[in-house]
């Protein structure tokens, strides 16, 4: 009920099923269980859970996944606007590892 979900219908994640060879790598690296494997093909099961980390696209050998990856960090966006250029983030404060 009190699940942490971010804004719906915004992410840039795309899957080209025709290119997919069903290796399952995208599902393995995704920390939000966005992909499932059905009939030896990847399927986006929970698009809105995607945080655009880019792990799936980077590890898809078939180039079937694309996502405009970046760090969802407001401070970085502000700095990007103030200093010019892409919003990037040093974010040395995330909890896991």
């Amino acid at each position: 009920m009190f699940e942490l979900r971010y804004l719906p219908n915004v992410v840039t994640l795309k899957l080209d099923s025709d290119k997919c060879i069903g290796c399952g790598m995208c599902a393995e690296v995704c920390p939000h269980a966005v992909f499932t494997l059905e009939n030896k093909r990847a399927r986006i099961a929970d698009r809105d859970a995607c945080m655009e980390c880019g792990a799936c696209a980077k590890n898809c050998i078939a180039g079937a996944v694309s996502v405009k990856s970046g760090v969802g960090c407001a401070a970085a966006v502000i700095r990007g606007i103030v200093g010019g250029g892409e919003p990037t983030c040093g974010c040395s404060s995330t909890p896991a590892n």
């Binding site: 971010y6 945080m51 655009e52 960090c73 919003p87």
Partner: peptide
Amino acid sequence: TGSSTYTSLSGV
């Protein structure tokens, strides 16, 4: 959002 583990850049 910068510290959270589930926010996407598009969403931010």
